[in-house]
Write a protein that binds this DNA or RNA. Structure first.
Lengths: 151, 151
DNA sequence: TATGACCTTGGAGTGCACTCCAAGCAAGCC
DNA sequence: GGCTTGCTTGGAGTGCACTCCAAGGTCATA
């Protein structure tokens, strides 16, 4: 059993770096998903998928001969990444900025790196805040646990 | 040096449980802060403080003889807690629910505990998600770092 | 070929969490 | 008293991230 090397070999400009350890529903070459399939895979709504495209957050989605969207594996990878960024609280405008850098090509590597490093710092800060909050919650919960049972 | 026991001894129904390790600007008894002082302490805006009160997120704020707000140490503690909850992504409506339980008295200890435990689970999940995101960011950042310098 | 589920678009609507405004009262200083 | 700065209110406005709608075209199955 081995991972399919296609993902990195045919890497598109859309998201060239670092193959995520994701299992694709279908292998590269047969990867043509309708919008409702992508809804099922990602948990996003069709509305949101179309909106992401309109605001420039999707690198470009193929179309069938009749104009319907046909998502590829690389689109799923991109959506996974976008979903992770969204969880960090990053504003959509910043994600669009990153998408623009990706579209602009290799010359933007440095700027992309800087953007992700700034995001990384945000994530570390948020984790620290959440740890703090966790401590407060634990203190209050244990208060309620003892007071609630001994009263 | 020892912590002032006043905070727990005179604990008000507002937020009776678990004295936070917070240094108050003034000791209990001389704690009467204007809204702009609270703005300076908490980082919240005056608009937001008034809005919190309007929607029932503040337990009740004292007023001067002319009707101006005079916040107490317990109010600062409460605002600290609310700010922590907000960082977890908890909707304001849920925080209002908790505030209502606090106002309702000791009979709601069990429900409060359940609410905080549910929040606790959310926080743990969010931390796990952020760790995951951190791994993805690190992978991409190291890609850009090597490609950017060797190109 | 008909039925019904799915897909397309631009634009309008929604919900949340603030954020601001106008008009007026209050407090402190010269 | 006059001036400035701060505080009060209800209600309206803002920005974000979706979310939905109407009107119509497409696809799969019977």
């Amino acid at each position: 059993m081995q991972t399919t090397p296609a993902a990195t070999e045919h890497a598109t400009p859309a998201d060239i770096c670092s193959a995520p350890p994701r299992r694709h529903p279908r292998p590269d070459g047969q990867d043509h998903y309708t919008i409702s399939e992508v809804v099922a895979f990602t948990g996003l709504t069709a509305h949101t998928l179309r909106w992401y495209e309109r605001i420039g957050l999707m690198p470009h989605v193929d179309r069938s001969h009749t104009g319907q969207r046909r998502y590829r594996n690389r689109d799923l990878d991109w959506l996974d990444f976008v979903t992770k960024l969204r969880l960090t609280g990053m504003p959509v405008a910043d994600m669009v900025r990153y998408a623009e850098l990706v579209r602009a090509g290799e010359d933007t590597y440095a700027e992309r790196q800087a953007l992700l490093e700034s995001t990384r710092r945000d994530v570390l800060n948020r984790i620290a805040e959440l740890r703090d909050t966790l401590a407060v919650l634990d203190r209050k919960i244990s208060f309620y646990a003892t007071e609630g049972t001994t009263r």
